[in-house]
Amino acid sequence: MLEIHKLGAIDIGSNAVRLLVSTVTKPEHKPTNFKKTSLVRIPIRLGADVFINGKISDENYARMLEAMQTYKHLINLHKVTKFRACATSAMRDASNGEELKNEVFQKTGIDIEIINGKDEAAIIAATDLHSLINDDSTYLYVDVGGGSTELTVFSKGKTISSKSFKIGTVRLLNNLVTETDWNEFKQWIQSRLSGFTKVNLIGSGGNINNIFKNSGKKAGKPLSYFYLSSYYQLLNSLTYEERISELQLNEDRADVIIPATKIYLTAMKYSKAKSVYVPKIGLVDGIIKSIYNENKKS
């Protein structure tokens, strides 16, 4: 007998708010399949408020609320049986984060979980990542967001260590990442990977997905450090307008892609990784998987 469920995931990030609707099919005596039915992304950039002024502005809250109302309609139209909404760096740093979370619940029925960096890294690690990595290899998984970057070390198929850093694309755009932040980032990578001779990077996030798409590489093939470094130089050589017109980047992508690439290159440098794999998974995928795993337990 074939079981079919629709699950929903909302990621309220520092740069954008996403909704993923996934169709989960479970054929009898066969592996469960997760298919992305719908993915909607709205660039609200909550982090631009929070990281500078400490709170979410009325204007961006109004946009976020409208996005949540729209997502609730879509969840109902898709007949989603269960969904989960998680907010990350911007809302957990906002002085009015809890207040707005309660207002959203009252007006939409969506109960937002404001998760910490450790939970965020754990949810991301719960994706299908383990099916993509070799059991005899070591990987540094780097998920770059607007407000934070989550690092996870995998070796021989197991999670060794993970940590969230307040180094994100929106923070970098606003010069809010200190030398101390970078030193902690570098030292953590070096200390956790000490003794491992060969490390590959796994990159996730909208920016690295965009770079991979433009590279023309086939799915499953990695990007080299040389390619990423050359692309970084190209990005820096173009104006914001040229990145939109010549590279066909969205307006909200054309600025954050530069600091994002810097983060990936820094992680590659200090892990001594020569290539980065881009499996196109992120927090929303992890949220879907967490709902599915919770349903299995119950």
Rank of each mutant, 00 (worst) to 15 (best):
K217S: 15
Y264C: 09
T152K: 04
F165Q: 07
P222G: 13
N134Y: 08
I263F: 01
G203M: 08
F154E: 05
A260D: 02
Y264M: 08
D143Y: 09
S191W: 04
L201N: 08
F165P: 06
D136S: 13
Y232C: 03
S204W: 06
E184A: 05
V256Q: 01
V142A: 12
S162W: 07
L238A: 04
F226R: 11
N200L: 00
L265T: 00
V144L: 03
F196R: 06
R171G: 10
I208S: 10
K262E: 15
L265W: 04
L265Y: 01
A219G: 03
N200Q: 13
I189L: 06
A260V: 11
L238K: 14
T266Y: 03
S224N: 09
G220I: 10
T169S: 15
G203I: 12
E179G: 13
L132P: 05
N175I: 02
I167N: 02
T169R: 00
G145E: 03
E179S: 14
K262T: 08
R243A: 00
L132D: 12
G145N: 04
L172E: 08
Y240N: 11
V170S: 08
Y264S: 08
S271Q: 09
I189K: 00
E246I: 13
G203N: 06
E242A: 12
L132I: 10
R192D: 04
R171D: 05
Y139S: 09
Y232V: 01
D135S: 14
W188H: 12
N134T: 06
F196N: 14
L228G: 07
H130W: 01
G168R: 10
V170R: 01
V170Y: 05
E150N: 14
L235F: 07
R192Y: 02
P222S: 14
G147W: 01
G203L: 08
A219I: 13
N209D: 15
G205P: 02
S230T: 10
S155A: 14
S191Y: 06
D255P: 01
F212W: 13
I257H: 03
S148L: 03
K221A: 15
F212T: 13
